[in-house]
């Protein structure tokens, strides 16, 4: 389910399509910005979908993440399938300080499950805004329980605090889940973890 870029792209580049889903305001674009530029800026609600790429060079393989940061606003829901179709990894994001976004995430999950055959897509449940502990409305246990129940990976993050470890973890595990060759997996990540080059690579 990983497509190797033919032609123009160098051999050994894995193209990984990753989609960010979830209610408006949960922090999808902020997470994408963390992935892409490791920064946190003020954002405006996404229009339609923002497409970003992030190239990650590992010891013997280059991963090209194509991140589809979808708009959470309800008016765009009808077009969202356009963006998540064929994704290798889906991050289902909710805001731990807003219960309704967690409920909404479960609705998304149902929809995704209709679209995907199990195993073809790595799905993550992500509780964002971990820094807002004082306003927490969804406990870690609840998030974890939902993830276990649906066989998803789970993590809490904070795009604001730039909880780098969590972000890397998402990358690493998303990739781990995707790369089926155990050898490659082992060799790629070893103990060092992936090495990121500077800056985003928007289009090559």
């Amino acid at each position: 389910n990983i497509s190797f870029h033919g032609g123009e792209s160098p051999k050994g580049t894995l193209r990984v399509k990753m989609v960010l889903l979830g209610s408006s305001g949960v922090g999808k674009s902020s997470l994408a910005l963390r992935f892409g530029k490791d920064e946190f800026r003020s954002t405006t609600p996404t229009v339609g979908c923002a497409y970003l790429t992030r190239v990650v060079h590992l010891s013997d393989v280059t991963l090209r993440f194509e991140i589809w940061d979808t708009a959470g606003q309800e008016k765009y829901h009808s077009v969202t399938p356009l963006y998540y179709r064929g994704a290798h990894a889906a991050l289902l994001v909710y805001d731990i300080s807003k219960r309704e976004t967690f409920i909404r995430a479960q609705v998304w999950l149902k929809e995704l499950e209709k679209q995907y055959t199990p195993g073809s897509t790595v799905m993550w449940l992500v509780g964002n805004k971990g820094d807002l502990a004082q306003d927490r409305q969804v406990s870690v246990q609840e998030g974890q329980a939902l993830a276990n129940d649906r066989d998803l990976s789970f993590t809490e993050t904070s795009a604001l605090a730039g909880d780098q470890v969590s972000e890397l973890l998402i990358y690493k595990k998303a990739v781990l889940g995707l790369i089926e060759s155990p050898d490659l997996t082992k060799e790629t990540f070893g103990n060092k973890g992936p090495k990121f080059k500077d800056g985003p690579h928007i289009y090559h």
């Binding site: 674009s29 994408a32 910005l33 892409g36 003020s42 954002t43 405006t44 609600p45 996404t46 229009v47 339609g48 979908c49 923002a50 497409y51 970003l52 790429t53 940061d69 708009a71 765009y76 077009v79 963006y83 928007i202």
Partner: peptide
């Protein structure tokens, strides 16, 4: 106006129904 009102366009490439 749509372009002016959204800083999100600066984040990457946008693909949106309009």
């Amino acid at each position: 106006n749509l372009i002016g009102a959204s800083s999100a366009f600066q984040a990457g490439e946008i693909w949106t129904p309009i």
